[in-house]
């Protein structure tokens, strides 16, 4: 399959030519395929924020290329704004970017910049609000009257309303309580299923990407150190711990059991998987 976005030997160096110069990403190659839900994980300073700001042309590579449908996005720098409509990026704590008088107007900001008006615009706004679970009566309220969790949904809807081919979310659940987190991630999953668009979910919670992603890219020290299905990635538990990431608790239990001689697959990352594996093991009568 042709990738929708190809990151081709991307390097970004901040403060080039000064004594403070530092490469936030170095020679990164990564393919993102149409329709997948890619999890991207790495601790603070691993370069993930810098990487995602290249995908929609907010940052310009100092080395390498970003290809969108096979074409270099910087081939025509004057048209970089079009890329931003096709690759939607939701920043961390996006509720701090809200500015309009009403929720509806704020969600409409993106599509209006694309040139949409009238009914088409209204439809977009309502649809986007629906995807993030905002009820229509909220659209006429001021965004500043809403709760923190609702504000975040408004901000996400503001990007979804542009109907991007790729939606990138940077830590969408940061700071939310468990119930808020689960319901937001449910919304994102159903948006992904309903539209068939590509979603990139950036997180520093292993459990979160493990539960949601089709594929996971692990970033550390300005580069991609692991990339594959959750099974593949979590089978490298030791590598993950070496780059300072904590594997899901359940994976840790599986790793500990294996260390104690229990014949169990260590590429396990959900409670259900481990439960099934252990049940099967017990049927077979394996000793400890």
């Amino acid at each position: 399959m042709e990738p929708i976005i190809r990151v081709d030997h991307l390097t970004h160096t901040y403060g080039q030519g000064t004594p403070f110069c530092r490469s936030a990403v170095k020679d990164v190659c990564l393919d993102i395929y149409p329709g997948e839900l890619l999890g991207m994980i790495g601790h603070t300073g691993s370069g993930k924020s810098t990487l995602i700001q290249h995908l929609n042309g907010l940052l310009k590579p100092t080395g390498g290329k970003i290809l969108f449908h096979g074409r270099d996005i910087w081939a025509e720098p004057g048209r970089i704004r079009d890329i931003r409509f096709k690759v939607g990026l939701v920043f961390q704590y996006p509720e701090y970017q809200l500015f309009e008088e009403t929720v509806g107007k704020d969600i409409a900001f993106g599509p209006r910049n694309m040139g949409l008006e009238g009914d088409a615009l209204r439809e977009r706004v309502e649809e986007a609000a629906g995807f993030v679970g905002l009820s229509p009566d909220l659209l006429d309220k001021s965004p500043f009257e809403l709760s923190g969790g609702q504000k975040r949904r408004v901000a996400i809807a503001g990007v979804i309303a542009m109907m991007p081919e790729v939606l990138i979310l940077d830590e969408p659940s940061a700071g939310l309580d468990p119930a808020g987190r689960d319901s937001l991630l449910n919304n994102i999953r159903s948006y992904h299923a309903a539209t068939g668009s590509t979603v990139v979910l950036v997180s520093h919670s292993m459990d979160e990407v493990a539960e949601n992603a089709d594929r996971i890219a692990v970033l550390a020290d300005a580069g991609v150190v692991l990339c594959g299905t959750p099974r593949e990635v979590f089978s490298h538990g030791e590598t993950l711990e070496a780059v300072g990431l904590t594997v899901p608790q359940v994976t840790k239990v599986a790793m500990e059991l294996r260390r104690r001689g229990v014949a169990i697959d260590s590429a396990i990352y959900t409670v259900e998987d481990l439960r099934r594996a252990l049940d099967a093991l017990r049927e077979g009568g394996a000793p400890c």
């Binding site: 309580d177 468990p178 119930a179 899901p248 608790q249 359940v250 409670v271 481990l274």
Partner: peptide, 11 residues
């Protein structure tokens, strides 16, 4: 109460 028990307990 809107909370989730730790994964070890859930398992």
């Amino acid at each position: 109460l809107g909370l989730t028990a730790p994964p070890t307990v859930l398992l």
